[in-house]
């Protein structure tokens, strides 16, 4: 199987893995943001959306396994490539100026690592709902509203988001994590086209602008929720 060998053992192949998984994860980020922003449409709307996802295990579990696979492949290729890159220059320069390389492009592994830890915290915080790490003293898993679809009470996502982001440290880490993620994307979204070979001198300026624009839009979209909560959105919720 030359195809698999080329993809998983060569330098360019590992970059394809990184680019394709990165692209899929960016699409997830767009979808996730669209879901999250429904919090501004009110308690009923976001809770209905959450219930829709939670009540379809045939959909949500394959999606979760898919995302986990993407993340594992993305991180695996990042670690392999970075180790090879480190090994390629055993003696460092006395003086080194990274001419022509912007900050985002030089810090991809570091921003990726920090975002990875943020993702783990984020999952424990809002998906697994570990009480000890939400810093509010409240148990998010116990937030329920009377069911509108079935007989069982639904999980109150609206209240969880608002109580969760009311903590300045949690919101701060969230903004930091999203900020670094978007810095990562400002380089990654354009680079993925380069890595799969879908770039030339005419596409390049446009792709670079799209990458920056998308990174800024995602940043503003994601941080709008904790910022709104800290500014008083949903203050009637206790």
């Amino acid at each position: 199987m030359n195809i698999l060998k080329n993809i998983f053992t060569t330098s360019l192949g590992k970059k394809y893995v990184m680019a394709v998984t990165g692209c899929a994860l960016v699409l997830f980020l767009v979808g996730h943001l669209a879901g999250n922003l429904q919090v501004f449409l009110g308690q009923e709307v976001i809770n209905r959306y959450g219930h829709f996802l939670q009540s379809n295990p045939e959909l949500i579990w394959p999606a979760r396994f898919g995302l986990l696979t993407l993340l594992v492949l993305h991180v695996w290729s990042a670690i392999r490539l970075t180790l090879e890159n480190r090994a390629a220059r055993p003696v460092a320069y006395g003086v080194y100026k990274p001419i022509g390389a912007n900050y985002a492009s030089r810090t991809m592994f570091m921003t990726g690592l920090i975002v990875f830890t943020f993702v783990i915290y984020h999952l424990l915080h809002y998906t697994v709902r570990v009480k000890a790490i939400n810093l509010t003293g409240q148990d998010f898993a116990a937030f329920k509203v009377p069911g509108t679809v079935g007989e069982h009470p639904q999980h109150d996502i609206y209240r969880m988001i608002i109580i969760g982001f009311r903590n300045i440290w949690v919101s701060g880490f969230y903004v930091l994590g999203i900020g670094l993620l978007c810095l990562h994307l400002s380089h990654g979204v354009s680079s993925m086209f380069q890595s799969i070979g879908w770039k030339n001198d005419s596409y390049r300026p446009l792709l670079d602008k799209i990458a920056c624009g998308l990174a800024i839009l995602l940043f503003l979209g994601y941080i709008s929720i904790p910022v709104a909560v800290l500014l008083g959105f949903g203050k009637d919720i206790q």
Partner: peptide
């Protein structure tokens, strides 16, 4: 050699 990370340097 190392791998390309498209820094452009």
């Amino acid at each position: 050699f190392g791998n390309c990370t498209v820094t452009g340097s």
